[in-house]
Every structure is written in C-alpha cells, then in structure tokens.
Nucleic acid binder design. Structure first.
Length: 419
RNA sequence: GUGAGCAUAGCUCAGUUGGUUAGAGCGCUGGACUGUGGCUCCAGAGGUCGAGGGUUCGAAUCCCUCUGUUCACCCCA
C-alpha cells in the first residue's frame, strides 16, 4: 500500500460533529443578521493582490507575510482572501450597490486564508461570517452594529463574551497621539521587553497591549488615544458610547485595543472570551472610512467579522439538538433485507431520519446498533412479517413491541404527520 | 519565522534502571439467548510502538535527523 497522503498544515478537515456545530452557529447568525436587514453576498475567494495590498496596508503583517499569493497563467498576481472587508467594499463600489436608504447592509460567510502557524483557534484556512454597513458615517450605524453583535451572543446563549470598544481617531488627530506615544515609549525604553522595543518602529500602538508585567507597569502613565481625539472624533465616540448605554449594551471602553489593518478609524471593537486561549477574539471590527478611497472609490463603512471556529468553541453545546434517528429498520432474515430497505425508503419519503443495516449483520447486532445510534423506534421485518404483511414496531424507550399491519402502520404515520 | 511539549490498538492512555509473547479501559465482532437493544458473563479480531539512521548481545524505552501535531511567542477572527 502506498503512503497515506495527508492534508496540508493548518488546513483542517471539519468532521461531521464539528460541521454540525459550524452549520448551526452559522445558520443562527444568518437569521440574526437578516432580522437587521442584512442580505447575503457571495464574494470570490480570490482577488487581485493589489486590492489587499492597498486596502489593508502594505506594512501590515497580513499583507507583509501572511498572504497566499501566486501568479495566474497570465502572470497576474492573485491572492487568496485573508479577510472579507476589502472584497466587500470592492464589490459594493464595482457593482454600485448603494441602497436607497443610504446604508447598504450586506453579509458574507466563507473561508479566509492566512499563512500563520496554527494554534488553538487559529488555522490557515478559517471561516468567518461578517457584515458590512456601507454608506453611513455613523454614529447611529456604529451603535446598531455593536448592539447587533451583542444581541447575537445573547441569542446564542453565550454569556461570557465581553465587548470592548475604543476609538482610533482619524488622520487628523491620530498622528499627534502617535508622536507623543512614541516619545513616551522611548523615554521608558529601559524598562521594556525586546518585543516592545521592536514595536516602537513597526507598530507603536501595539506596545500598549504587551502582556509582559514590567512593560505594563512602565506604561501606566502612557498617553491614551481618547485624550487626543479631535472634536469630531470625540463627539462621534461620545455618541456611540451613550447610544450603547441607552440600549443597555454592556461594553467596556478599552483604549488598548488596536487594529492590525490600516483601514480602521474611529470606532473599533472586539468581542473577547478568556476561554479561547491566547487567541481570545471571537469577533472584531470597526469603522473604515478611508478604505474605499484607498481602492479608488468613496464610501463610509463599518463592519465586523466573527471567527466561526472560535464561535463554536465559545458556545455551550450541552443543550444543542443533535440529529435523532427516528427509525431503525432491521431485517430478521435474509429474504427481508431488501424489503427492509424499501420500508426505510418509504419512511424517508415521509421526512423521517431512518437507518438500516448495510453489513448483513445479525438481528442482535442490528438492534445493538440501533441502540447506539439512539434510535427512537425499531421496525423489524422477517419471513413471518413478509407473509402476513405486518411489521414489528418496537419502542426503544419502553422496550414494548407490537405486531402491526404494514398498511395501517403507514396510515398511522400519515395521521401523525398531518396532525 | 521562534520556543516548548507530545507521537504506542478505531478512541483515551499505561508501559519500571533498556530484557524475551507490548497491555488496560472504552469501542468493534461472535456467543451465553437457533428472530430481539441496554445490564452481566465468556471468547475473539485488531499494533511496521510516527519515519529513517545510530548505540547495544538486546530498543516502544537511550542518542541524532526528519515529519506530523498541540500549545505559546509574533500576529489575528
């Protein structure tokens, strides 16, 4: 036998049990989005590399070292999408999807690709469901989007997720903050870890959420973005937080949250859960008023994406309904094998989940199998039943069994269905 | 890209200072019960001990290399 060909690192197979949870989480999320008027769009998995380079930012880690980029047969550089927002905005501009109301509400779901080392809650192909509200400058849009996210967790019964919000300012007010922050960090450089020293150059805002205790201590008096907001940004943020409070959305203002993508401005938010390990964000997003301009258009926008794998890790599955085997059809004799499969087909035609033995096993083995599968009822057919046109109906919870005419059994089913 | 841990039956894992036929629980198959599940008892099948090399009389065990995987760093959903 030749060697088993294995899957690629970071590209996980999703087992039936996991797929069931993904499907459930995704369906519930879709329904929730739809109630807020969001409509699904289906976007390509592949875009021109330029879209992400310009939209997300050349200097970001995603673009710099995490993209799956390759030339197509004509030598054009293509990239497997690492996130959905750039594609969504591109499609909005290209298709002129401007809604009469002024805010276009769309959502997407599907795989994203990033070349990273896999770890808990992080894969090279991972699944997101995200939405974008394009066209409105806020802050009412911001409020509704965060409210929507909060209510989604409530609806899913997830209660240990915290929503953190912050404002990243805008191109008018962020530079002053950044300069002061860099000055402060440089003054405190002696107490910082090597990672933070490197971040002074690469991404100074990241120094603020370093996990090293000595760094945290050294940064206690560091400048806070919220103190630098221009009057427009400050007003925007005040209205967002007041709106969330007014709607009863629990949130925490966390000046340390930062976005890894260049296009974000003003409102930024994350939903975090400490049961997720190091990758604690189950959903994240923010406002991106500059993105459209970067890719040749013009539009306000805000959105977020939920990591489906992470969402399923956070959800409580104890009470989830698993598929139930309604009937197991057992053949007591060889002659009854095909009639048993035929009866199973009739029941499936009426909408029941029906299992039957496919391995020529003994009646005892079939019943054991039915029991393991959690079947509610078993139908048994043997030579006697074939001759008399009957079927043995056994209720597995009580163990009671009775002989019923085949036709009247099926008629009874019909009555139950319509009743 | 960096670091640490792990890799033994379908699954979860034991396996002593290196020692002869590598074990358990669960699961699977059959029987006790000629056509009846769960509980019990009995029997059975199932393993190139991740791969390759080395040390040794002898390696699942010690050493090296590789691969896979997990967690963490980085970063992010």
């Amino acid at each position: 036998m030749s060697k088993l060909i294995r899957g690629i690192r970071g590209f996980k197979d999703i087992s039936p049990d996991e797929a069931f949870r993904h499907r459930y989480a995704e369906d519930r999320t879709r329904e929730h989005f739809a109630r807020f008027g969001y409509r699904e769009v289906r976007l390509p998995l592949v875009e021109s590399t330029e879209l992400f380079a310009r939209g997300i930012g050349e200097a970001t880690d995603i673009v710099d070292k995490e993209m799956y980029t390759f030339p197509d047969r004509n030598g054009v550089s293509l990239t497997l999408r690492p996130e959905g927002t750039a594609s969504a905005v591109r499609a909005y501009l290209e298709g002129n999807w401007k809604a009469p109301s002024g805010v276009t509400k769309i959502f997407y779901t599907g795989p994203m690709f990033r070349y990273e080392r896999p770890q808990k809650g992080r894969y090279r192909q991972f699944y997101q469901i995200g939405l974008e509200a394009i066209g409105g400058p806020g802050p009412l849009v911001d409020i509704e989007v965060i409210d929507l996210l909060h209510l989604l967790f409530v609806g899913l019964g997830v209660n240990d997720v915290k929503i953190l919000v912050n404002s990243l300012g805008c191109p008018a007010c962020r530079p002053a903050f950044r300069d002061d922050l860099v000055d402060y960090i440089k003054a405190a450089a002696g107490k910082l870890c090597s990672n933070c020293l490197r971040r002074i150059e690469t991404n100074p805002m990241r120094v603020l959420d370093c996990k090293v205790p000595t760094c945290r201590e050294a940064l206690e008096g560091a400048p806070v973005i919220l103190g630098y907001l221009c009057s427009d940004c400050d007003d925007h943020f005040s209205r967002v937080t007041a709106g969330l409070t007014g709607l009863g959305v629990p949130y925490e203002v966390d000046p340390k949250i930062v976005r890894g993508l260049d296009y974000y401005n003003r409102t930024a938010f994350e939903a975090v859960c400490d049961r997720l390990g190091a990758q604690n964000a189950v959903a994240a997003g923010g406002r991106y008023d500059g993105l459209a301009r970067e890719i040749g258009g013009d539009a306000y926008g805000i959105g977020f994406a939920i990591g489906l794998e992470r969402l399923t890790l956070v959800m409580d599955w104890k009470s989830a309904e698993l598929p139930v085997v309604d009937y197991y059809v057992a053949a007591a004799t060889q002659r009854a094998r095909i009639p048993a499969l035929g009866l199973a087909d009739v029941l499936r035609g009426k909408g029941y989940l029906v299992e039957a033995d496919l391995e020529d096993r003994s009646l005892k083995a079939q019943l054991r199998s039915a029991n393991r599968a959690g079947a509610l009822r078993v139908l048994i057919i043997g030579d006697d039943e074939l001759r008399d046109e009957t079927v043995q109906v056994k209720d597995f919870s009580t163990g009671q069994q009775q002989t019923v005419g085949r036709d009247s059994f099926l008629k009874e089913l019909q009555a139950l269905k319509t009743g």
